[in-house]
Amino acid sequence: MLKKSLLALSLGTLLCGAQAMAADYKIDKEGQHAFVNFKISHLGYSWLYGTFKDFDGSFSFDAAKPEASAVKVELKTASVDSNHAERDKHLRSADFLNVAKHPTATFASTSVKSTGEGTADITGDLTLNGVTKPVVIAARFIGEGQDPWGGYRAGFEGSTRLKLKDFDIQKDLGPAAQEVELIISVEGVRQ
């Protein structure tokens, strides 16, 4: 009887310990359930929107302990798409993203701090245009659960603002266009 009780206690401890650990997710790039979009003022008259079509990444997440989470993303800068071929060519040039010299941008989290129910600040190192700077992404948990294909998913959205000059982007389009807002939406499949 004592052996059965000890075995049950050991199994219970293992199962509870496993549930308390962060799960690893791969960002669902294949199913196009992830987006890295941007918004910047066009001369102070309107908004210019765009996206990056080629990126990949992963995250680990535990709803019970969000501060144990982590995020890594790599983005191909040449995949910028603002729905205008000539503008995209200019965005890829040395005036902006300099994709010939810096074909990738990366983000690796260094800490996650809960800011409320389902929200967190994700601090990490962003490397863009050959410059690495710390940034904070204000993130919101959207949901998690089983998908119709037998997998398990979790989704988040977040945003941050970047000063272009901080990343050695020197092209000046006037005072209204000094910052760009990144809007990120990701859905990950648990591995």
Rank of each mutant, 00 (worst) to 15 (best):
K89A: 14
A18V: 09
G145R: 00
T110N: 04
A34R: 08
A70C: 02
S114K: 13
K53D: 15
N37H: 12
I40S: 09
E144V: 04
D62P: 03
E67K: 07
A138H: 15
N129P: 00
L6A: 04
A78W: 08
N98S: 12
L91M: 11
D125N: 10
Q146H: 01
F141K: 04
G188W: 00
V186D: 13
T13A: 15
A70L: 04
A176L: 09
S82C: 06
V112F: 06
K89N: 14
A34N: 11
G150R: 12
E181I: 13
K39R: 14
P148K: 00
I142T: 05
F52T: 09
R92V: 08
K163R: 13
V99K: 09
H102R: 04
S60K: 11
F96H: 10
G12Q: 01
R87H: 03
V131W: 02
Q170M: 15
M21F: 12
G151H: 03
V180C: 04
K163L: 06
S114R: 15
D28I: 10
L11N: 11
N129A: 06
L164T: 07
L97W: 03
E86S: 11
A64D: 11
K26I: 14
I169G: 01
E157W: 06
A20M: 13
G155W: 02
A34H: 04
V180T: 08
T160Y: 06
A18F: 11
V189H: 00
L48F: 10
N83S: 13
E187L: 01
L75Q: 03
Y49M: 11
V112R: 05
K72P: 03
V71T: 08
W149P: 08
P175Q: 15
I40K: 10
Y25K: 01
F55Q: 09
K76R: 15
G44C: 10
Y152A: 00
K4M: 10
L7Q: 07
S46T: 14
L9D: 00
I183S: 09
S185H: 14
G50Y: 07
C16D: 01
S93L: 05
S79M: 05
T104A: 02
L97V: 07
Q191H: 12
I40Y: 12
Y152N: 01
D81V: 02
V180F: 02
K163S: 11
T106Y: 01
G151K: 00
S111C: 00
P175K: 15
A94W: 08
I183Y: 08
F59P: 10
F141L: 05
T13M: 11
G57S: 04
L6P: 07
L128Y: 00
F96R: 07
I27V: 13
C16N: 10
I27P: 06
K39Y: 03
V131K: 09
L97I: 05
S82P: 13
L75H: 04
S5R: 14
S159P: 09
W149F: 07
G31F: 04
A64W: 02
K4A: 11
F107P: 07
D121H: 05
A8Y: 01
D95I: 00
K113R: 12
S93C: 10
S58A: 05
